[in-house]
Design a protein around this nucleic acid. Structure first.
Length: 263
DNA sequence: CGCTAATTCAATG
DNA sequence: CATTGAATTAGCG
């Protein structure tokens, strides 16, 4: 899955409608631009639009969260946290959007639940990307994908990730714990079975979670990837700096909604 | 405008 | 926390 397609140069002009959002990067830049505090005609400081709704679908947000994770898998709460840390908008109405996140995780085949192995106790299971969903956003990060990633009923019923062991840390914290521990050993694997007509080899396929989940060619080192942008933001004290543009012209929908919600 | 992806409400385990 | 359904909203070709 590549959320940040081949756009080496940031757009000189920003999209004027949601239908022209080319990819995650310019989308993010535009979003940041729309969040700049402005002064209204009376010179009064208008509420910062930091809380405007991010131009990403829940599918995109979840995918980004999981991909930026060292272990390429996160627990529900870690996903919530990542989203809230990056987008202030989601610090509000948590009950509503978090329910939507849960619905997305369960409903979309691109997300697979990874149950915890005995050696990694904790609350809730992990969520990872299905290995076959890597090209979901190849045509750019749209609010809506062209096609939904859907598994055949056959595969859906038999495919599942069995366990997440310490070989698959999902956070920096756990990563450290793992480091002082040992390396290979317990089995973490993708488990597929039931395809009897495929013979012994095909009827039971074990794939290492590490290769199946972690080694998907994510490309987040791209200079304009969201991660790079986020890092840049953090280095600037989370003070997003962007060209001065008219936010309402970029994302009128988000802009207006935010204004209406101003409290 | 039509198709269908995404979001929301919410019941149930 | 996870799954599912039904109804509604809303991107995008």
């Amino acid at each position: 899955m590549t959320l940040n397609p081949v756009v080496m140069n940031p757009p000189q002009s920003y999209p004027t409608s949601s239908s022209t959002i080319p990819n995650l990067d310019s989308t993010y830049q535009s979003y940041i631009c729309s969040n700049q505090t402005k002064l209204d005609k009376k010179g009064c400081e208008r509420r910062s639009l930091t809380h405007s709704k991010p131009p990403y679908s829940y599918i995109s947000l979840i995918t980004m969260a999981i991909q930026q994770a060292p272990g390429k898998m996160l627990t529900l709460n870690e996903i919530y946290q990542w989203i809230m840390d990056l987008f202030p908008y989601y610090r509000q109405n948590q009950q509503r959007w978090q329910n939507s996140i849960r619905h997305s995780l369960s409903f979309n085949d691109c997300f697979v639940r990874v149950s915890r192995a005995p050696d990694r106790p904790g609350k809730g299971s992990f969520w990872a990307m299905h290995p076959g969903s890597e090209n979901m956003f190849d045509n750019g990060c749209y609010l809506r994908r062209q096609k939904r990633f859907k598994l055949a009923e056959k595969e859906k019923a038999t495919f599942q990730i069995r366990k997440a062991t310490k070989q698959n840390p999902c956070s920096e914290k756990e990563k450290k714990e793992e480091d002082k521990g040992k390396q290979r050993g317990t089995s973490a694997f993708l488990h597929q079975e039931g395809m009897n007509e495929m013979g012994p080899e095909g009827s039971f396929v074990d794939l290492d979670v590490e290769s199946a989940v972690r080694d998907i060619h994510y490309d987040f080192s791209h200079p304009f990837s969201i991660n790079s942008l986020v890092e840049a933001g953090e280095q600037n004290g989370m003070v997003y700096r962007a060209p001065d543009v008219d936010a309402s012209a970029v994302y009128p929908r988000f802009y207006n909604r935010s204004v209406l919600n101003t409290s």
